[in-house]
């Protein structure tokens, strides 16, 4: 603030101190850049090494073949999470690498049971990471079911099932058409009593759709809407996804084996409802293989 005229300092070479400070600031900036970019690149390790593969929502750009494209297209907003009536969709965390904020499904916890009917998650997706190419649940290709532990399967052992499929504490939900067509209820509120266990077939959304179609057919075959649906490719009924095939071991016990068919969309309901095994992924007798799907099987 002083306005006294000082003798003009002789022109000095750019101060060593200033130069030194600039040099240090430059080095700091380079370190910051390297640090932040380096950290962001660490996030690429899981997807590049294949560790980020998960069961994705219906319509996800086909994983695992195009996992990279799916991760690229997803804007990480979670709108698919918000519209799912059974809250099947979860968002990835930092340890999932480049998949932070990207949706996936843990079928053992909560599978996609298509109880929204209209593929709400696909409709909600703003970027096409869930492609709008599919119009109906039967078009989905999320994975393919596999009888993972045939020996543990109750049906293969010829056993029935009585009680709650996943115990009292399980909070997963399914839509039971006969109870409420429009809102899913907790599996724990719906005990079963089956002579021989067929839960994976009984609860399969595709199989349920087939039954629904057949009933509709009986009711009003000539309804114009039904015909329109047939014409635009909404197959009603869709192809069978899973069925029970009798097996004979010559011991007189009636045994059935769940057999997965071309109509399987990999939604994970069979893995979810399977009463065998604990709550951890992969413990059920039947699981979803994300490396396979109906199309790949030709």
């Amino acid at each position: 603030m002083s306005n006294e005229k000082k003798p003009k300092p002789k022109k000095q070479p750019v101060g060593k101190v200033v130069k030194d400070r600039q040099r240090r600031e430059f080095l700091r900036s380079a370190a910051l850049t390297a640090g932040v970019v380096g950290f962001s690149l660490v996030g690429l390790v899981p997807p590049l090494s294949g560790a980020s593969l998960r069961l994705r929502p219906p319509g996800a750009i086909k994983s695992p073949l195009d996992e990279e494209k799916f991760l690229a297209a997803c804007i990480k907003c979670g709108q698919c999470v918000q519209v799912c009536p059974v809250e099947a969709i979860k968002l990835g965390d930092l340890l999932d690498g480049a998949g932070v904020g990207v949706p996936h499904i843990e079928p053992r916890e909560q599978a996609c049971d298509f109880s929204c009917d209209g593929l709400q998650c696909v409709l909600a997706c703003p970027t096409g990471a869930l492609t709008h190419e599919l119009d109906f649940p039967a078009d989905a290709r999320m994975g393919f079911a596999r009888l993972h532990k045939p020996k543990a399967c109750l049906a293969v052992q010829g056993k029935g099932f009585k009680g709650k499929a996943r115990g009292d504490d399980y909070d997963g939900k399914l839509r039971y058409t006969e109870i409420d067509r429009w809102s899913p209820i907790p599996v724990a509120e719906h005990p079963y009593d089956l002579e021989i266990c067929d839960l994976c077939v009984r609860q399969c959304p595709i199989e349920q759709r087939i039954i629904e179609c057949e009933e509709k057919k009986k009711e009003g075959q000539d309804r114009p809407t039904a015909r329109v649906a047939m014409v635009i490719g909404h197959e009603c009924p869709p192809k069978h996804a899973i069925e029970m095939r009798p097996i004979d071991r010559g011991d007189g016990v009636k045994r059935l084996k769940p057999t997965i068919l071309d109509g399987c969309v990999g939604c994970g309901v069979c893995e979810m409802i399977c009463p065998v095994g604990g709550d951890e992924p992969g413990e059920a007798a039947i699981v979803i293989d994300i490396h396979q799907n109906t199309d790949m099987r030709g």
Binding site: I75, K76, V100
Partner: peptide, 19 residues
């Protein structure tokens, strides 16, 4: 450039706004 070349939305992984 990272997004363009790697094909991943690299910045989104570390963006505190999104997180």
């Amino acid at each position: 450039l990272l997004a363009l070349l790697s094909g991943y939305t690299v910045f989104e992984t570390i963006s505190p706004t999104g997180i």
